[in-house]
């Protein structure tokens, strides 16, 4: 099976029912995308599929074949950080950081379709779990990234 991840083509030999998350982590070797629950509850595994956010633990790899997949490792353009990553650094958002790859990917996808989200838009779109509780800084950083556009 052929996968396009962060602009690179990967040939993977896996059962088509394998979750995209585990193919990304174990076959492709990109471990920035995290396993948190395996049942699309927590969002730690969020990646972009054709620009849309998906919880990769619950997407069979067969459904990702032919799609353009972006992971946290592919969000920046070369050495230039994505505006969300930059806002995350400016606002010192992560605590343990484990959920933040998924959080950042969910936010980057939100800003693509809704460049100036209101607080209510953020509440509706960003449903990722963060046990450290970084939400105050997450919200600040989303607004800052939206302004930076």
């Amino acid at each position: 099976m052929r996968l396009t991840i962060n602009g690179k083509s990967h040939e993977v030999d896996v059962d088509p029912t394998t979750p995209l998350l585990w193919v990304i982590r174990e076959q492709v070797g990109l471990t920035g995308t995290k396993y948190g629950c395996g049942v699309a509850q927590c969002g730690a595994c969020t990646v972009h599929m054709n620009g849309l956010p998906v919880r990769s633990c619950s997407v069979p790899v067969s459904a990702a074949s032919g799609a353009k997949i972006t992971t946290i490792e592919g969000l920046a353009s070369g050495k230039t950080l994505h505006k969300v990553q930059k806002a995350w650094i400016d606002h010192d958002v992560p605590q343990c950081g484990y959920c933040q790859s998924g959080m950042i990917m969910a936010v980057a996808a939100l800003l693509r379709t809704n460049p100036k989200p209101s607080d209510a838009d953020i509440d509706a779109a960003i449903t990722n779990i963060c046990r450290c509780g970084t939400f105050v800084q997450v919200r600040e950083a989303i607004h800052a990234a939206a302004k930076a556009a």
Partner: peptide, 8 residues
């Protein structure tokens, strides 16, 4: 923080 925003 740096490694927590780029997956490294």
């Amino acid at each position: 923080t740096a490694g927590k925003v780029n997956g490294t």
